[in-house]
């Protein structure tokens, strides 16, 4: 409850800042288009800042939910949304699209996001299929290892493409670091259903995730179909991450630290952890995006740089003061 109010507050503040500062009273009248609202402010809010802030909140929430799900599924505190290769797949897809100047689009995605989305989904599918052939369903260790191996391979292919076709360095590099510049309503519309569906499915899986924390034998003795559960978790998280990466590039750190911070607040039970992670992830990314466009206004920096430089020290601080609960 408190966290949702806080999120709304953070989003409001974020919309106030930028190359033009909008006072809270003016912001309120612009958002709700009350009589006497400044038309310039209305344009700035409705065309630029509101969709951007919404997208940052949605992407942050989705990355954090996926991070929480993977940490629970893998019982590993280092798992993040990118562990099973979705982002490397997206990177390769996007690089191919940029390097060869792809055009067209589908499902409401433009050419680069579409290739990124497809690349991410294909990679997750391959990782799952490879891990699955070990027998008895995809094991946690083989999923992690297949994700790491395929991720390294795809990154090498991205590097190769960058060197071979030498023109798109800057474009690809800023995409890889992730950001929300020039994102507007079409991006929100395209990503919204995937992000919400993914987050919702992961929240529904809260109790199976709790059961998995106690080990596979314990979960199986409760009648949990482990194989199906893993497939659902990987698909839901994979879809959410693929959509997030497709519209905003590869944003690190949010999906890693938001779930840990949420665990310190509400404990490890996923019924409360999932929504809390999503809210914290949304807040973190909205704040980071505000910094990204406010520090060097009117220019901006990729938000991935902000999340890592701000998130890193914050994470180390949490680890230092409350780290014993991690082990």
């Amino acid at each position: 409850m408190v966290a949702s109010v806080l999120l709304l507050l953070v989003m409001a503040l974020s919309m106030g800042f930028g190359s033009v500062f909008i006072k809270p009273s003016a912001l309120f009248s612009a958002v709700f288009r009350t009589a006497g609202a400044d038309p310039v402010n209305v344009t700035i809010i409705w065309d630029l800042r509101l969709p951007r802030t919404l997208l940052a909140a949605l992407v942050g929430g989705a990355l954090a939910s996926a991070g929480a799900a993977f940490q629970g599924l893998f019982r590993n505190p280092l798992a993040d949304p990118h562990v099973i290769g979705a982002s490397s797949g997206a990177a390769l897809g996007a690089t191919l699209a940029i390097a060869f100047g792809a055009s067209g689009g589908a499902l409401g995605f433009g050419p680069v996001p579409l290739c990124a989305f497809a690349g991410a989904l294909a990679t997750v599918a391959v990782v799952y299929a490879v891990a699955e052939t070990g027998g008895g369903g995809a094991s946690v260790a083989s999923l992690l290892l297949a994700g790491a191996a395929l991720g390294a391979m795809l990154s090498a292919m991205v590097s190769f493409l960058l060197i071979w076709r030498d023109q798109p360095w800057f474009h690809v590099f800023s995409w890889l670091l992730g950001g929300f510049s020039n994102r507007s309503w079409p991006h929100v519309q395209t990503a919204l259903p995937w992000l919400l569906a993914g987050m919702g499915a992961l929240w529904l899986m809260a109790r199976p995730l709790d059961a998995l924390l106690g080990g596979d034998d314990a979960a199986r003795s409760l009648g949990l179909p482990i194989r199906t559960t893993r497939l659902i978790l990987v698909s839901a998280a994979g879809l959410a991450v693929a959509a997030a990466v497709a519209v905003s590039g590869i944003i690190g750190f949010v999906g890693l630290i938001a779930p840990h911070a949420a665990r310190w607040l509400v404990g490890a039970g996923h019924a409360r952890l999932m929504p809390m992670s999503a809210l914290l992830g949304a807040m973190l990314l909205v704040v980071a995006d505000t910094f990204a466009r406010a520090i060097f206004a009117p220019g901006e920096i990729p938000v991935g740089i902000v999340t890592a430089t701000l998130g890193g020290p914050f994470f180390l601080y949490l680890l230092k003061t409350r780290g014993r609960r991690l082990a």
């Binding site: 940490q71 629970g72 019982r75 590993n76 505190p77 529904l204 899986m205 109790r207 199976p208 709790d210 059961a211 924390l213 106690g214 080990g215 034998d217 314990a218 003795s221 409760l222 009648g223 949990l224 665990r263 404990g267 490890a268 039970g269 991690l326 082990a327």
Partner: peptide, 28 residues
């Protein structure tokens, strides 16, 4: 089970015991 896998993130005792109701109530 014999092995009680220690998890990186412990549930509370009542959360762990309540999982025993899942086969009756369904997971959702």
């Amino acid at each position: 089970p014999q092995r009680v896998t220690p998890s990186a993130w412990p549930l509370s005792v009542s959360e762990a015991v309540s999982l025993g109701r899942a086969p009756h109530r369904g997971w959702f």
